[in-house]
Design a protein around this nucleic acid. Structure first.
Lengths: 131, 131, 131, 131
DNA sequence: GTGGTCTAGACCACA
DNA sequence: GTGGTCTAGACCACA
């Protein structure tokens, strides 16, 4: 599936799942009405405990992004694509801002930081390209 | 002092202290041989529990960046400025890479990400300038 | 403490805890700023698993009713007493409405239902009085 | 038919079916000897899975309220009308008691609770009247 | 098969 | 001591 978990990046695992579900809806890889992979299936896929996945899905329910379809699973709520696009931008902006802020406070100047960003983006996109 | 702690940025507080000490040495705001503020003073300054600061300093000792000066406190080890510059670059690069990677996997393209980076950098530097 | 859990009344245990915390704040038995009993202490008190209590407290946090005080516990947020009073009325009204609706649909008339309500209220208040 | 299922009222769906069958017998909307609608028909009617209806009917059989009539289906047992009237009173009383007890423990006084009961009864009966 | 709830127990950061 | 997260495993209602 479209999720990739990194256990040691400072973001709680369930929170990574929450974010990536929002991203997938923003990308329209998950469509409103569509059922998500089951908690059990996803937990096997990601090598996580089912409770961890369930916690992520519960949070998404409480945010009105997923809803239960009794006995069948969890589905994307209607009309949340736009909201997920906004959320994606916010979540990514906030995390970048936090990293950039540390870099500035750490004494790097704007040019040095931009150079690092360019280098990392190049490495990351060439990785993706070569896969 | 030169530290600023953000309890909600995903990085553990003691780890923020560790990083910022390294950054201060890289910036030469802390010179080799120079004594650090005492655990007690710093914990008051940052409104942290002394145990948290102590843990950060212990880690810095175990990495060979700080050393005890009998009866006087903890000092920056000789000759670590270069290493701290390298560490700073690594720590900041890794964190940026992690955020950038999430942004790419989340479906934003390079241009969108660069735009966010520019915007955040501008906001952050104009804030600093106006302080 | 002021909580009483009934495992078999159809309301999930963690939800009972959520409701009773709101009620306690509405009653001003819990004041804004006040620390709640710790998860561990309360779980012992109520003979529940700590995770069950933690889940209730997490929900209360996500509703903006409790907040964490790092290393010390969970506290009632400022200014939520009024909101809890409204919530209490809603929660109790909804549950009563649901029971009354079933009674009406089940073929009892208004008088019979009112008689039952009076009888139950009398029994319940005389119990409390005699305690 | 005379059943109405509310998926979110805390009572399990199969249990709602069990209760409403008892109520229908108490009201004499279902007469001893009378055949119930088939599991299949009722499950279509109520938009439930047949297993859920079957489970309700099984429980009613085990309580001696329904019995199989070979090749024809399930019928109301002879002489259960009185028992169902008692059961109805008990089931409704218990549920009301539970809600009233929560209201009292939640800090509302008898007058406030009675006012809520009156208001809800009025709303519910005027709704029925206007249908 | 599906999700929801609960228990049990571990490890972590922080005070 | 405090809460937060995660794993493991059980039982339930529903489809």
């Amino acid at each position: 599936m479209f999720f990739s978990i990194d256990a040691n990046n400072g973001v709680a695992i369930y929170e990574q799942v929450v974010r990536q579900v929002k991203f997938a809806i923003a990308e329209e890889a998950l469509q409103p009405g569509q059922l998500l992979p089951s908690i059990r299936a996803l937990s096997v896929d990601l090598a996580l405990n089912p409770n961890t996945v369930a916690r992520a899905f519960q949070q998404l329910q409480s945010e009105g992004i997923l809803e239960t379809v009794r006995g069948r699973g969890l589905a994307v709520c209607a009309g949340v694509a736009e909201r997920c696009k906004e959320l994606r931008r916010e979540l990514i902006s906030d995390r970048l801002r936090s990293a950039l802020s540390e870099a500035l406070r750490g004494g790097l100047n704007t040019e040095e930081i931009q150079a690092i960003v360019q280098q990392q983006l190049q490495e990351l996109t060439s990785q993706v390209a070569s896969q």
